[in-house]
Design a protein around this nucleic acid. Sequence first.
RNA 1: GCCGCGUUGGUCAAUCGGCUAAGACGCCUCUCUUUCACGGAGGAAUGACGGGUUCGACUCCCGUACGCGGUACCA
Length: 504
Amino acid sequence: MSDSKIRVRFAPSPTGGLHLGGVRTVLFNYLFARQHHGKFILRIEDTDQSRYVPGAEDYIWRCLQWCGLLPDEGPHVGGPFGPYRQSERKNIYQTYAHQLVEQGQAYYAFDTPEELEAKRREQPNFQYDVHSRWQMKNSLTLPAQQVKDLLQQGYPYVIRIRMPENTTLRMHDLIRGEVEFQTEQVDDKVLLKADGMPTYHLAVVVDDYLMQISHVFRGEEWLPSTPVHLLLWEYLFGKQHMPQWAHLPLILRPDGHGKLSKRDGDRLGFPVYAMDWTDPFTGETTRGFREMGFLPEAFVNMLALLGWNDGSGQEIFTLEELVERFSIERIHKAGARFDFEKAKWFNHEWIKRLPASHFAPEVKKIFAQHQIPIPQDNQFLQVLELVKERCNLLTDFVAQAGFFFQPPATYDRAAIEKKWNPQMKACFEAWMATLTDLVPWNATTLEQSLQEVATRHGLKKNDCLLPLRIMLVGGKFGPPVFQIAERLGKAETRQRIQRALQHF
RNA sequence: GCCGCGUUGGUCAAUCGGCUAAGACGCCUCUCUUUCACGGAGGAAUGACGGGUUCGACUCCCGUACGCGGUACCA
């Protein structure tokens, strides 16, 4: 592949949250473009005005930003092939649609939506195609003069592609190999809608040509409509300019059947969108991976491995490594089921690998949301570093690190009930006294001193560990208990023991 | 219904005719740690089915089954 002209695009329609499958499509486009030193373009496919959702386009942009997969050209950054919003290119498509009619490869159709609906009701399998178009109201069946009149009167019409008869269309897909279609089987798709806007089919082909797209990575759900695109390329621009196709396997839901959807996430308790999305009409917010506590590095890494692997068994990759190793040949053909447990594992791995400073700002935000006081940076970082191996999600830091900055609100009494007794209480009281003079204050000296006091009281040090933990953190979690005490400092440690002793 | 695409453990998956079928997640056992993790050692668990082709098929071909996608003036 010659690198110089590699141009790929992600072309979402701004109708809501950005689905994880969408992000994976972005990722594969991005990796391919970077690897070949080409361009990655963002194009907004907003040709359906009835589905326009305010804020969705901006949201998509922010998702790409969070993932670190920003395009080289697009509505927010501009570029030499703009505008990058299809609604702003309306008249371009009209010209091509009419050209097709003139060439006899498309035709005007005057059937109203109601008429079509009625037709489908009486004939459940109705398809507007090679066979049925002769019974419909269009420029193929109506007398030329009537067509002219209708057009002149401004009677609403659409332009439909005229699928040829008895033709086999062949296409080479980079992932699936040779794919064949019989033109008879595909319908006369609408190219230009009554409102003058193109449908996806016309718009992709026109824009992919005008924007000089060299490779199309898109979801497998588009495979059945490629014959229309193939024909359009042939009719309008010549197949020699056609991009190469790569239809990506779908991301399936973890249980039952079907494509993963937002509703599955709600139902099963995991995110499907990259970031929180609030529907501007209903005000309903759908949780995103970011807000659920995912690191973009992990999110992207996890997505890359859903349908692709480099064959070496390596699973943790940086974006740079992915750019280097990515290859179309190693994309799987079959759909992949999304597994939230594995997604969390990726996140855990990335939390362990990255220095705390990398995600501290995000954790601070989470702490603020939970009203947990945030100390000075170096102290904060040290604590995060100490507990990060216990956190799968960034939100886990609340439970794993929050107690360092805030005394426990409750005590897990049940955990120590069996071991707690008056001697032990006496032991802790005695220890409190010795603690005043403990120098230096660290995990080792703390342990030694408890050892001594415990022995003196006829107790085993180890039996005191869990009670001490409950006093300091409130529950059975956190790093080794003497490290916690060291970190907490003398005053705070004594205070917490003191307070707990009153409760026990 | 029709068309297209797919099918290796529960999940992600390696294998491009030689397999006693990798690895990872999850699960279980042990170990470390008297918390929870991390780390370490083990374990259970897989080629949809039927025909070919071949000395030899998980790998190639054909059927069947099953799954998914599409079948809108949505993308």
